[in-house]
Amino acid sequence: MLVIVAEPVILSPIVTLATVADQTSGARLVAPPNFNPASPTVDQVAVEERVAALAKRSLKKASKVAGLKLAISMMDLTTLEGKDTAGKVRAMCQKALYPLGSDPSLPQVAAVCVYPNWVRLAKQCLAGSNIKVASVATAFPSGQSPLPIKLDDVRRAVEFGADEIDMVIDRGAMLSGQYGKVFDEIAAVKEACGAAHLKVILETGELGSYDVVRKASEIGIAAGGDFIKTSTGKVVPAATPAVTLVMLQAIADHYRATGRKVGMKPAGGIRTAKQALHYLVIVKETLGDAWLTPDLFRFGASTLLNDVLMQLQKEKTGNYQSSEDFSKD
C-alpha cells in the first residue's frame, strides 16, 4: 500500500512527518512531488566549538568506568571486509560474547555487524545471547545499484536472520537534489525490513557540509529510519563528534516535535576509549538520559573494544596496560 505523505511535509525549524505513525500499519511512505525538506542550517564553526568544549569534560573513576562499560554495551562490533571468512566472524562473535574472558562483570556488546553472507553464521555463534546481528545491505557501501537489487539485498539479509539492517542512502541523489528519491528508497527499504530495525547510513564524509548532513538526517528520520548512522567506514572522514552532534540535534528536534525516539550510530574512526567517552558526553548533553542505552545509541567499530578494555583494566588495577594483554582477533 502506498501512502502519499500529506503536504506540507516538513517545516522549518522542527521537522515533523505527521504520518510517520503510519509505518506501524505497514504502509510505505512516499515523498510528495518536489520534496525538499526545509531543514535548519548549521554553522560549522559553532558546532565544532561545541564538541570541542564537550571533549573537555573530565571523567574520572566511577564515571569513567560506568561510561566505558556503557560504551561496550553500545558497540556494534564490526567486520566488513572483502577478506572476511568464517574464522574471522566466529572469532568476532566470541569476543562479542566475552569481551574479556577474565572479567565476567563486563557487559556484552550490542551487536555484531557483518555482510549478508555472514549473517547466518553470526546468528549461530550468538544463539542464546541478546546480541543482535546487524547486516549491511542495499549495495553497501556505495549504494550504486538499482533499487530492486537493493531491496533484494535487504530481504535476503532479513531472511538470513538479521535483526538489524544498515542501509546506505543514495548520496548521488542527495547531492543532486533528488530528495524524493532518497526518501522513497529509505521508505522502501524500511518496508522490506519488516520487523528488522533499520539504520540509515548517510555517509556524511561524502555529503560535503553539515547543512546537507542535517537535511539527510531529516529525510532518514522522516522516511522511517529507526537509527541514523554516520558512515560506512569505507570513506574518510567517517564519524566525527561534530557530525554526530548535528545528527543528534536532528533527532532531538524530531523527538520534541513528535515524541518519537530515533537512534544514532556513529561509525568508523572511533578507536579509543577517550573518543568513545567524548561521544557519550555529547549524547548525554544533547539528548539526555533516554538515549544512553544500546536501544538508541550504538558505536560502529572494529578496534575500539580493546582500547576500552585496556582503560577499564587500568582503572581496575591502577596500572597502565600493555596492548598484548588483549586479544587481537
Binding site: 554553522d43 560549522q44 564553526v45 559553532a46 565544532e48 560535503g208 557540509s209 553539515y210
Partner: peptide, 9 residues
C-alpha cells in the same frame, strides 16, 4: 565598530 563572523561551510 568591530565585527566578527565565523568562517566555515
Amino acid at each position: 565598530k568591530t565585527i566578527w563572523h565565523p568562517v566555515g561551510i
